[in-house]
């Protein structure tokens, strides 16, 4: 019940830093856009730290927008992006080594570039201890209509899909996975080990549903038939197997080992 003064100060510092960073991100946000030509309808993305947001593109090309900041200051080269055109795979990795290799003078100079006084003063006050680095890495991938299969694998970043695709295989180890309404996936396979998993699905579809969480909870607003024989109900291991309407057409598989699973009907 009692919070020590030190904890309060640490928490206050943290909140302040976040506020400053947020404020400055809005000031500093710039788009670094790259376009790629697609040969077929399959797209794969592998990412380590960046959060991935998938949107539909208005063109027939794949557009990649990266945004990487250190304490709210743009660092365009913080994210490395490779495109393997044969397998149509985007490889996105955060190159933190670049920052680690920078001298204090270089970092101080970089922070001076921030057109945000709060960041500058906070940097001067708190120094460049590793805890004072606040990275933000996100990638917006705008995919053309022709992309009907998305396979995304992320280690730390979240995955958020707002694009109609027949097949979705989305996996993140530590980030959350979310699919927005009206995406119309026919084969929806969403999984996160530590983050939450959320799907907005068509409640009128004929679906075979599997929802799993070991240490989290499972929520839904869809009334579907639960097959109690196929479902597993053990302490810290819940698997719900069921059928929505007649089943057999759409496949929904949502799993989070340590967080919650949400299945919402449209």
């Amino acid at each position: 019940m009692f919070i020590s003064e030190n904890s309060k100060i640490t928490a206050m510092k943290y909140i302040l830093t976040c506020l400053i960073a947020c404020l400055c991100i809005s000031i500093q946000a710039q788009e670094n856009t790259t376009n790629y030509v697609l040969k077929n309808s399959d797209l794969k993305i592998k990412s380590d730290y960046a959060s991935i947001l998938i949107e539909s593109s208005k063109t027939d090309q794949l557009e990649l927008v990266t945004n990487a900041t250190l304490n709210g200051v743009q660092m365009a080269d913080l994210l490395d992006v490779d495109w393997d055109s044969n397998s149509q795979t985007l490889l996105i990795s955060a190159n933190f080594k670049k920052v680690k290799k920078m001298s204090k003078a270089e970092l101080d100079k970089l922070m001076e570039e921030a057109d945000c006084e709060e960041i500058k003063s906070s940097w001067k006050k708190n120094g460049n201890a590793w805890g004072n680095y606040n990275f933000n890495t996100e990638v917006v991938v705008r995919v053309p209509k022709q992309v009907s299969s998305l396979n995304i694998n992320s280690t730390y970043g979240s995955i958020d899909v707002n694009h109609k695709a027949q097949t979705l295989h989305l996996f993140s180890t530590y980030g959350s996975v979310e699919v927005q309404p009206n995406t119309g996936c026919n084969n929806c396979d969403l999984e996160s080990t530590y983050g939450s998993v959320s799907l907005n699905a068509n409640s009128k579809a004929n679906s075979d549903i599997t929802l799993q969480s070991n240490y989290g909870d499972i929520y839904t607003d869809i009334d579907f038939d639960i097959n109690k024989e196929k479902s597993e109900n053990e302490m810290f291991h819940s698997v719900i197997v069921g059928t929505l309407n007649k089943g057999g057409q759409q496949k929904i598989h949502l799993r989070s080992d340590y967080s919650n699973v949400y299945l919402r009907g449209n």
């Binding site: 499972i218 929520y219 839904t220 639960i226 109900n233 698997v239 719900i240 919402r264």
Partner: peptide, 15 residues
């Protein structure tokens, strides 16, 4: 209660 769970019900494998 998580924000995301608003409007949803908590269910388990036994139905």
């Amino acid at each position: 209660t998580p924000e995301k769970s608003k409007g949803l019900k908590l269910i388990n494998p036994a139905g």
